[in-house]
Design a protein around this nucleic acid. Structure first.
Length: 540
RNA sequence: GCGGGUGUAGCUCAAUGGUAGAGCUCCAGCCUUCCAAGCUGGCGGUGCGGGUUCGAUCCCCGUCACCCGCUCCA
């Protein structure tokens, strides 16, 4: 929508009502993080997927030098040898140690605790203000601390040790000036002191870390993992443990040599794959935007390290262009460079990552990720070479140079792509009976054409059936006979069918039908035998 | 994982500690020459599990799902 942002509730309701997306396992109460695609949702997803495959593998873009790129397809197993995920860094790194607060139940990432305390804690901010104002961070005053703990601190940090037991905590906080000391106010250790009642008690091992929200001493790190685990074979033990892939990319890297040896590709070239991936997200949210099972469209572009910058720029532009070609409004798309500290483990050393983002209704006015274009360097091939002992280096047949190729990875979310296309098409229109229509680009619409006899009389149904049979082999066509014409138009509006062909009495005399255009509701007449050509022109 | 909210038919909503209703949709039939029209008929429901009660959709507890806000998002 260029104007008002549509309501996500309405989109979810329409998606279910018309068979795009259903809650998974709905009759059993559903299951958090999973969704089922209905008939039209499947059709739409296939449209997006097929467009990607066509534009990546069947007919890849023309490269900077004017020659078509070389990209081949792959479909690897969802379950791989577990060593794949150790080598890729997912088993070790795809988990964040979390710490739980026994006081308020707050869950905080262990490695972010200091920065969260420094910037996102209400009670720390209060202390900052008091200490800044009173002493400029240079001095600890028991009077100030005592006053805060007895008043404001009771509300903002009720479980902080100094609030619960002022005298005991003050007794081990030295008073005075020590600007360079690590205990100085503003340093992490100072807040640890405030959170620790008896630092030397035998039952307590050193200083406590306070909860940013309530001040209670945080519990130890809890191991979490975003990896779905399963077992191969009927015996379930550590040796049989396997993982469902959290990304399709590794299937490509571990087949790098196979593809090289079995096809005639030469660097630079790409390997593309579409498939399911699984992540145990902490909080699945926002409809199908973040599910625990989702689908990816990933292409790994292997190139000479010296050319990585060139190809990165190429793919950044190309991928944004591609999303626009799906019919998504350009103003709802943006590119965003990742900050240094949000770069993935495999992209730390490279030229950075940029996302293609879409303005989803639930992120508006902000944007949410559709696709990431990452410079993975030689990280993955190097890791697999080390872990597997298989040489992954590439020997250029012309120059005889041997090197580890770098990888530019455009990794797109198919599931998110479907959501973006759906949201972008959703167009409320109070002036029409359905109140809404889906403004899909004609080539993306699940149903391209509906053939509608004006009445259910044989005189109308017979020519309509004939037309439908002519369209069926080439186009996603529907024949709908039942109900009055208005209801049928309304239904086609709601599922986003761009063209309806209606057979009426005039058809019988002059062999023409009306074409009803979805967006304008305008009608024009077209000869029966010209309908296939009409559609072919519209959907390419 | 935390806090708040919601949960009655496919959808929108009503009602009551005592047989759960309407409109629209959908299906069948009639009628109908272009935008959910009209007539007749039909399908279909209290998220799930406990508890209190003679009796629970309503009250209580738990659970599940969704929404909002946190948190998280290699």
């Amino acid at each position: 929508m260029a104007d008002a942002t549509p309501d996500m509730k309405d989109i979810v309701a329409l998606a279910k009502r018309r068979g795009f997306v259903f809650p998974a396992s709905e009759i059993y109460g559903g299951i958090n993080g999973f969704w089922d695609f209905g008939p039209l949702g499947t059709a739409l997803k296939n449209r997006v997927r097929d467009a990607w495959w066509r534009d990546m593998v069947t007919c890849p873009p023309i490269g900077p030098d004017g020659a078509p790129l070389s990209i081949v397809g792959l479909d690897s197993a969802i379950i791989q040898n577990p060593k794949v995920w150790e080598a890729s860094g997912h088993v070790g790194g795809f988990s964040d140690p979390m710490r739980k607060c026994p006081g308020c139940g707050h869950f905080v990432r262990a490695d972010h605790l200091q920065s969260i305390l420094a910037t996102d804690s209400e009670w720390v901010q209060e202390l900052y203000e008091i200490l800044m104002w009173k002493t400029g961070f240079n001095e600890v005053s028991h009077d100030h601390l005592r006053h805060w703990a007895a008043t404001k601190g009771r509300k903002s940090a009720p479980n902080l040790a100094i609030v619960r037991n002022i005298d005991s905590v003050l007794s081990h906080i030295p008073e005075g000036r020590y600007p360079e000391d690590e205990w100085a106010p503003g340093h992490f250790k100072f807040f640890q002191l405030l959170a620790t009642e008896q630092p030397n008690a035998p039952s307590v091992t050193g200083l406590q870390d306070p909860c940013p929200r309530c001040g209670a001493p945080l519990g130890g790190p809890v191991e979490t993992s975003l990896m779905f685990a399963s077992h191969t074979g009927v015996e379930q033990n550590d040796a049989s443990k396997v993982y469902l892939r959290p990304e399709t990319a590794q299937g490509i890297f571990i087949n790098f040599k196979n593809v090289l040896d079995s096809t005639r590709v030469r660097v630079p070239f790409g390997i593309a794959q579409v498939g399911k991936a699984f992540r145990n997200e902490v909080t699945p949210r926002n409809f199908i935007f973040r599910g625990r099972e989702f689908e990816q469209m990933e292409m790994e572009w292997f190139c000479h390290p010296d050319d990585a910058a060139l190809w990165r720029e190429f793919w950044l532009a190309e991928r944004r262009r591609w999303w626009e070609a799906l019919g998504i409004r350009p103003e709802n798309l943006q590119m965003r460079e990742h900050e240094k500290d949000e770069l993935s483990h495999y992209a730390k050393e490279g030229l950075g990552t940029q996302d293609v983002e879409y303005r989803f209704p639930f992120t508006a006015p902000g944007f949410g990720e559709l696709e990431g274009v990452a410079h993975r360097c030689a990280f993955d091939l190097t890791q697999h070479q080390e872990h597997s002992g298989t040489k992954m280096e590439y020997r250029d047949p012309v120059t005889n140079e041997t090197y580890m190729p770098h990888v530019i990875e455009p990794a797109a979310g198919l599931t998110r792509g479907v959501l973006a296309v759906l949201c972008d098409a959703y167009t409320p229109d109070p002036s029409r009976p359905s109140g809404v229509y889906l403004n899909f680009a004609p080539h993306m619409a699940p149903v391209t054409a509906a053939v509608l006899p004006l009445t259910a009389k044989p005189a109308h149904v017979e020519p309509a059936t004939k037309l439908y049979m002519a369209l069926r082999p080439r186009f996603a066509a529907e024949l709908d006979v039942k109900q009055n014409i208005g209801k049928r138009y309304a239904r086609q509006d709601e599922i986003g069918t761009p063209y309806c062909f209606t057979v009426d009495n005039d058809t019988l005399s002059d062999q023409t039908v009306t074409v009803r255009h979805r967006n304008t509701m305008a009608q024009e007449r077209v000869a029966l035998d010209k309908v296939p050509a009409f559609l072919a022109e519209k959907v390419g």
